[in-house]
Design a protein around this nucleic acid. Structure first.
Lengths: 281, 281
DNA sequence: CGGCCCCAGTGGTCTATGCCACCTTCGCTT
DNA sequence: AAGCGAAGGTGGCATAGACCACTGGGGCCG
């Protein structure tokens, strides 16, 4: 990550070095030469130049604007390891949350979603994509998949206000009971980046959730992407041996980020998660 | 991301969809056809095919092996998020965990760590960097910072086996009580990528944790990076209205990934996190 | 003068192609 | 039988060129 004057046999590396110096010599927001001009200056092809630029865009040093040019990034999007971050952002639950429906259709479930919802791939589902906003700024994209038979007459406007689970209960007689949710890191693709307003390949959190009613019937499959530069999860962990009476002590291994002791590991984890069974051959 | 039978004008999109179904129809670790074969099958050029594969690789669905081929990624290690209900059975982390100490020194705390641990920047801390392995494969890097006065005589070997919190209690008389932990997405830098064996800029989870004893005194500040392609967090959520008597119903907003209803914007979350107080200007 | 359109320049996508580095395998050599 | 080495397949890197989509401004036309 640091200097290293050693020249790499990779042209990309050399180009990247040049670009970084170019960035540092300019003020934030300043334009840099066009791709074609840089290609000629550096004697490389455009795909090579672009691939080098891609890296700098990912790390947040450069921004591209279609039809306008490339510019030195205004502020660091993603901070590198050492979190000197002066700005520990506001608590997650703060701000005013709102939704904007991007898409609302009834389509066939298809193989993947059908498997998760335990319905036929040909069965119809209500598919809803909505943007989640906090104080009018995009925070996440949510893709909902609900078996169509469960929510007859559902309208897009229903998804822009109020609580969906309340709606399910009060108007469709469906009471959500439990959910299994997975959280993993990812990076944004083009569509996600555009919708939540961050560069492509920015860090993000990917949530997947399968919700069931009391009978165990899947009622919704949700897939959502939260921008990583504005969202984080905070948890308080009780580690005490002498826990408040009557409450089981959560062992270390129960918390993400606190692996079990070296000899403790073994594992049969729930083989099926989110209903996506993958029978080994 | 999911479903959406709508065809995109982008070939990459179409190719990606094909690849995803191909991945899901195979067991983890199974090989998929070669790049050149897939190009012919799908009628696209190799750069296009490769660009689509790139997305799935950074997403963690596919892995490439130079000279061997492409394979469906293995399942992720999963851990359960702090269970708000009594944690039932099931071990929360799979695999056999081990550690390898990379660095073990005593240094001055410095401004950043000193602030978090509530000690003088000039005070000495024991700094430990260790690699966390699961089934002998690198899973995470952990950077521990502990006030040196708390752990006199601690040796590197102590950090390679057994539970650190047990060690603190039994040998140093320090009983950890609670911790505040934040989880956020990031991407690997050069060093991290090298240590945990993933490409640079791969998705990863960044944990930060401040642990305190019963008196509220900070005893450890941990900063760790988990590879995103092999690790995820899974949580079971109880959403029932009619919750078991006497237990508060977890409101939606309390779960990451389930934002509060549109009008609900509330927010009581610890204003200060990880001891890094930053009064808003 | 005002509004519209067109056009040049920019990034975005895709193709076709070549060569290199790496891994596996299989047959030849010792 | 054991070892070695060449061949063929795989992913990795880079090229040159074409066309599309978007932006902004300047010139044309009303």
């Amino acid at each position: 990550m640091v200097s290293e004057p050693a020249r790499s046999p990779l042209k990309r590396e050399r180009v990247r070095e040049h670009l970084m110096e170019l960035v540092e010599s300019r003020a934030p927001g300043a334009p840099i030469p066009s791709e074609r001009a840089l290609c000629e200056q550096l004697g490389v092809s455009r795909p090579t130049l672009r691939s080098a630029v891609d890296e700098l865009v990912t790390t947040g040093l450069l921004v591209r604007e279609h039809g306008r040019g490339m510019f030195v990034a205004r502020a660091k999007i993603t901070q590198e390891l050492a979190p000197d971050r002066d700005s520990h952002r506001l608590p997650q639950a703060s701000g005013t949350w709102a939704s904007r429906v991007l898409e609302f259709t009834t389509v066939r479930a298809g193989a993947r979603v059908g498997r998760r919802l335990r319905i036929s791939p040909a069965a119809e589902i209500t598919y809803i994509a909505r943007l989640r906003l906090v104080d009018d700024e995009p925070m996440a994209i949510e893709y909902l998949h609900v078996p169509a038979v469960l929510v007859p007459g559902l309208r897009p406007a229903d998804m822009e206000s109020g609580d969906f689970y309340d709606l399910l209960r009060d108007r469709h007689g469906v009471r959500v009971h439990e959910a299994v949710q997975s959280i993993e890191p990812t990076v944004t693709n083009e569509e996600e980046a555009r919708l939540i307003g961050v560069p492509v390949l920015s860090p993000a959190l990917l949530f997947e959730r399968l919700t069931r009613d009391a009978t165990g019937r899947p009622v919704e499959y949700v897939h959502s992407v939260y921008r990583g530069d504005r969202y984080r999860i905070v948890s308080r962990l009780a580690l005490d041996d002498a826990a408040p009476a009557g409450r089981a002590r959560p062992a270390h291994g129960h918390h993400p980020g606190i692996p079990p002791g070296d000899l403790a590991g073994r594992g049969d984890v729930p083989a099926q998660m989110l209903g996506d069974v993958q029978p080994a051959p």
